[in-house]
């Protein structure tokens, strides 16, 4: 008899709490961004296609459907880490060679050699190249994501990926070397008496 009561009581409790949980999950449902948008927001938007998808958003969709989230060389470790945090997945090693870290590059067209074929214009995923047929083309450096998709189609190989040198406005302090190191560099000033 007591066993029966105990079973019933537990059953009743289970029903009550189950109902409560169900109610709570309906009532307090979090209406977040669709997961694809959240993933897309973490990708670097170079649209370089190195992940095997035509752009960042398609890759975001693929990740949402279960593809590995370690195929973005421009995003590097940080992006993998962020995606792992977002998706609750394991941190995977980067699939592919990392982009030569931190050196930002943009495309540069040697305009004297450009024949105006518009192939690079068609290849550019962010419309950062202007020009018309038989007119020389040029890169809008501010809009260039450095994806280098325009380099290969060029029939005369007049596109280079050049490093963007730091300027006074983009320069930033570097991280100190850490425990055991002195944050100091020695300058030899020669022309000072």
């Amino acid at each position: 008899m007591t066993i029966l009561i105990a079973v019933l009581a537990l059953l009743a409790l289970a029903v009550v709490f189950g109902a409560l949980l169900g109610f709570a999950s309906e009532k307090f449902r979090v209406e977040g961004d669709p997961i694809v948008d959240q993933i897309d927001a973490l990708l670097p938007q170079t649209q370089c296609g190195q992940c095997g998808h035509p752009g960042c958003r398609p890759y975001a969709e693929a990740i949402a459907e279960g593809e590995d989230h370690n195929r973005c060389p421009p995003g590097g470790e940080q992006t993998i880490q962020d995606l792992s945090d977002l998706l609750g997945r394991e941190v995977l090693p980067l699939d592919g060679e990392a982009d030569s870290a931190d050196v930002k590059k943009v495309a540069f067209i040697r305009e004297a050699e450009c024949i105006g074929c518009t192939k690079c214009i068609q290849a550019c995923p962010v419309d950062a190249i202007v020009g018309a047929a038989r007119q020389m083309h040029t890169v809008i450096a501010d809009e260039c994501t450095g994806c280098d998709l325009c380099v290969e189609p060029c029939p005369v190989d007049c596109i280079d990926m050049i490093e963007v040198p730091p300027t006074l406005t983009t320069w930033g302090w570097s991280r100190p070397d850490g425990v055991g190191k002195t944050p100091e560099r020695l300058i030899n000033v020669v022309n000072l008496r």
């Binding site: 990708l43 938007q45 170079t46 752009g55 960042c56 950062a128 809009e143 983009t170 930033g172």
Partner: peptide
């Protein structure tokens, strides 16, 4: 260093948004 990185991140984020829009 951290402030510079934050600035850099913000700039990159802005640029990524623009790239996304353009794409």
């Amino acid at each position: 260093y951290a402030k510079a990185e934050l600035r850099k991140q913000a700039a990159e984020h802005q640029k990524a948004d623009r790239a996304r829009e353009r794409f």
